[in-house]
Write a protein that binds this DNA or RNA. Structure first.
Length: 800
RNA sequence: GCGGGCGUGGCGGAAUUGGCAGACGCGCAAGAUUUAGGUUCUUGUGUCAUUGACGUGCAGGUUCAAGUCCUGUCGCCCGCACCA
């Protein structure tokens, strides 16, 4: 038989499609298994091998699960709204709808060529009006529940993409889409109140099975801190200056206060401030800095003292100066801090530069050299003096604050509300109407979907307004409440909207009455295993958990967490070890690999190249080894002999391999699973023949990895289709050889290896070791001080 | 600065609870087959050395035994970052 993958692969792909082999059945009595991979953004460049690796992990698990008798939902779709498509449209003049359709077609062809066992009857496209109708519906539900608001404040703005970005999309001060520097602008935009769910998002992590560093990154991103709000007073006008601190225990060490340059107090009290011109100059200077520059940790602090305003420390009545400085951010806490230079290194740097007092309140450091942030006995702190434990000191300080009514416990999160908008065309229209009489009015549910109008010109406006603003027929409308002339919101939703709930739609993708039926959600949710990239952990993962938790709270979904388990695959690097990128020209196109080696070889190689969770460089040589392996499996069909039971010479090898491959797939150790199959094939070649039982087992183990070759061999040799068969079982007792090689060591050095029956006890092993001729020779004239025997492993003689 | 991870042959990478370091694959070498190249097959392949020694970034430690545990140190990668 010839291994002609060019014929075999399309043949089986067609067979699976015609026989609906991978269609999931909602309500089936089989146990359900929902495997989810991150659906791709269909870019013009097509897929690269990284996509293939990302999907291959759960592809293998899904194929195995089906053989194990599960009803498997393994869906795919397209996350198709987004800037790159729109930019292509602007450049080429082709409408984004057309660009998207072409790209989806290209991706679909590529995915099908690789033979993934997706349920193609459930494909979702986030730009389909039957899909985004429900994205808008969820938005309106959030609006209804007070989770949507508009605010005019500083936003992250990308001057290149001409859009406002969320905090998650501007990490490191760089635009997530084009990587240019973000600037801060004051703008009125839409927000989703994700901070309201901060605690739930944090607590939910305790009930899910995520990779430890996925959990950790989310915890850090949410960034919960506990402390206290303290109300200082401004002496000149008696007003309150509220701060947040995690260290209320150091209140007696406060020697000055700092407020952010944007703090509203300055505008409010302009009349009281004698050096307002100087402050304005500094504030203007800060405004010019990019967010990235602002957040660089710098020793050299800058700032200006506010003349004419003095703060009063509520705990001891002490009067202290107030400064403005850009090391205090308006976006965290209250935008104002109490500064304790003795015990905070930033305050320490600032105090040194401006010649401010430094008062030690915790013993243990040398504050003439640096701030001391450790624990120690409280001093110079009135009633707190003598307390040696930080926790006790904080509790005492809180008690005093509460008694005086000038402060209370508080919690802060690093996570900010989600700036939910794009001033662009290719996104879901935000279903809101601005009425001159009624204000902000939601579009009624029965008017959904609010369709994206067809336009000719998608160029974003220079003033940061959406292209939709230019479409009069879209903008002008009647207020749904009072019927007066009104205007539609023209911003669209950000890229992440559609992906925040797509896993729900897969459960029931064609439902026109609901985002998915209650029955289907109850049956399929939660996702049993979600695999994707680490880059989505603090964006998509957080967003979608937030939406899901909201939908749970309003009774739409049956479970509080969307994903029971989350793993992540490593990147495929270019052959040069660099990240694959178009600009470096080191991108490998899966189509090219399939042309030369076939889909099965590609699938095996992307999993064999290294630890699934680690990055690994592509190697054109490495893939040849996988091709040889498959050829060797194929060639075994010429060495087939009769026999429906494993032969003794292969018994342990068969059981061992089943155990190893089964376990490794569950642990995502695909590389060692493949290595185990390679070893088995090597052993079979040593034996010289393979019987029916043995070959069936080998092909079954191989099936999740190389399904086309496995199906072809299995069906042509045994007359049945492998996808309808069962996964192989192993017998634990048969995974060990009768005879085992054990090592004899003298003083920890290997001196001899001998075969002994498996399962021998320590005394027997010791006796055997001492009888060994070689051991006798080497221990001659010396004293055996100690004998350590480890059953089935080794015997070590300690000799003097 | 904080948090996480990694460091093993020429290369990608293996190594449950501490128990034969280098599985599997690539590459390389020699041989066989072939008109030749490629393919395929066989054998070998950590380093040094004539029996043996040394070897998992480096330096210590614990142990009969350490890639694995402990202490210190160097290097690389990733995430967050003036978060009060």
């Amino acid at each position: 038989m010839d291994y002609n993958f060019k014929e075999i692969e399309p043949k089986w792909q067609k067979y699976w499609e015609e026989h609906k082999t991978f269609e999931a059945v909602t309500g089936s009595s089989k146990p359900k298994f929902y495997a989810l991979v991150e659906f791709p953004y269909p870019s013009g460049a097509g897929m690269h091998v990284g996509h293939i690796r990302a999907y291959s992990g759960l592809e293998v698990v899904s194929r195995k699960r089906r053989l194990e008798g599960y009803n498997v939902l393994f869906p795919i779709g397209f996350d198709a709204y987004g800037l790159p498509t729109e930019n292509t449209a602007i450049k080429t003049g082709v409408h984004p709808r057309k660009v998207t359709d072409n790209n989806i077609k290209k991706f679909t062809e590529q995915l099908k060529r690789v033979g993934f066992s997706f349920d193609w009857s459930r494909v979702v496209d986030t730009t389909d009006e039957n899909y985004y109708k429900w994205t808008q519906w969820i938005f309106l539900k959030m609006f209804e529940n007070g989770l949507v608001f508009r605010d005019k404040t500083l936003v992250n703005y990308c001057p290149s993409c001409k859009v406002v970005l969320s905090n998650e999309d501007s990490q490191g001060g760089k635009c997530d889409i084009c990587h240019s520097d973000i600037v801060q602008r004051t703008k009125e935009v839409w927000y989703l109140r994700i901070t309201e769910y901060a605690d739930k998002l944090l607590q939910g992590l305790e009930e899910v099975n995520y990779l430890p560093n996925v959990k950790l990154q989310q915890q850090n991103w949410i960034g919960k801190s506990t402390g206290a709000f303290v109300n200082f007073t401004v002496k000149e006008n008696g007003e309150t200056l509220r701060i947040y601190t995690t260290r209320p225990d150091t209140l007696y060490g406060v020697t000055f206060m700092v407020i952010a340059p944007e703090h509203p107090m300055i505008e409010k009290h302009r009349a009281n401030i004698s050096n307002i011109a100087e402050l304005d100059a500094y504030r203007e200077e800060c405004g010019k800095k990019s967010e990235f520059e602002r957040t660089q940790l710098v020793k050299d602090k800058t700032g200006v003292k506010i003349d004419g305003l003095t703060a009063v420390n509520p705990i001891n009545g002490k009067e202290i100066p107030i400064y403005i400085s850009d090391y205090v951010m308006m976006g965290y806490g209250t935008g104002a801090i109490m500064a304790v230079p003795a015990h905070d290194s930033r305050d320490y740097d600032f105090a040194n530069k401006f010649g401010i007092d430094i008062i030690e309140v915790i013993k243990g450091g040398d504050i003439s050299k640096e701030a001391y942030t450790g624990d120690g006995e409280m001093v110079n702190s009135g009633p707190l003096n003598g307390i040696t434990n930080k926790k006790d000191a904080i509790e005492k300080a809180l008690a005093i604050l509460e008694e005086k009514g000038c402060g209370e416990r508080g919690v802060q999160y690093k996570m900010k509300d989600w700036a939910f908008n794009r001033q662009r065309y290719w996104g879901e229209p935000i279903p809101i109407v601005h009425c001159p009489h009624c204000g902000i009015v939601p579009v009624p549910y029965d008017e959904l979907p609010l369709r994206l109008p067809p336009v000719e010109n998608f160029e974003p406006g220079e003033g940061g307004e959406s292209p939709l603003a230019k479409i009069d027929s879209f903008v002008n409308c009647k207020c749904p409440k009072c019927g007066a002339d009104a205007k539609r919101e023209t911003d669209t939703m950000p890229q992440w909207a559609g992906s925040s709930w797509y896993f729900l739609r897969y459960c029931d993708p064609n439902n026109s009455e609901a985002l998915a039926s209650e029955e289907s959600l109850k049956y399929w949710m939660p996702v049993d295993w979600y695999n994707g990239g680490m880059e989505h952990v603090t964006r998509h993962m957080i967003y979608s958990r937030f939406w899901h938790k909201f939908l749970y709270d309003i009774g739409v979904v049956p479970c509080p967490e969307p994903y029971a388990k989350r793993t992540a695959q490593g990147l495929i690097l270019g052959p040069d070890g660099d990240k694959m990128s178009k600009s470096k020209g080191n991108v490998v196109d899966p189509n090219d690999v399939v042309d030369v080696y076939g889909a099965d070889v590609l699938r095996i190689y992307v999993l064999f190249m290294g630890d699934y969770e680690q990055a690994a460089p592509w190697s054109d040589n490495g893939i040849k080894g996988c091709k040889r392996f498959l050829d060797r499996v194929w060639a075994l069909s010429d060495k087939l002999v009769d026999g429906n039971e494993y032969r003794p010479e292969l018994m342990t090898a068969m059981h061992k391999t089943i155990k190893k491959v089964s376990g490794d797939i569950e642990a995502m150790k695909f590389n060692t699973a493949i290595a185990a199959m390679m070893s088995l094939v090597n052993v079979i070649y040593e034996v010289g023949s393979v019987n029916h039982a043995e070959y069936k087992t080998l092909l079954t183990l191989l099936y999740p990895f190389a399904p086309h070759a496995a199906e072809e061999l299995y069906s042509s040799l045994f007359g049945t289709v492998l996808s309808n068969q069962s996964w192989q079982e192993f017998d634990e007792t048969k995974t060990v050889d009768d005879e085992i090689e054990i090592v004899l060591q003298i003083n920890g050095k290997v001196k001899e290896k001998i075969m002994v029956p498996a399962g021998l006890g320590k005394p027997e092993l010791e006796a055997i070791a001492l009888e060994s001729e070689r051991v006798k020779a080497l221990t001659d004239g010396k004293t055996v001080v100690k004998v350590i025997a480890v059953p089935d492993k080794l015997v070590n003689l300690v000799v003097k």
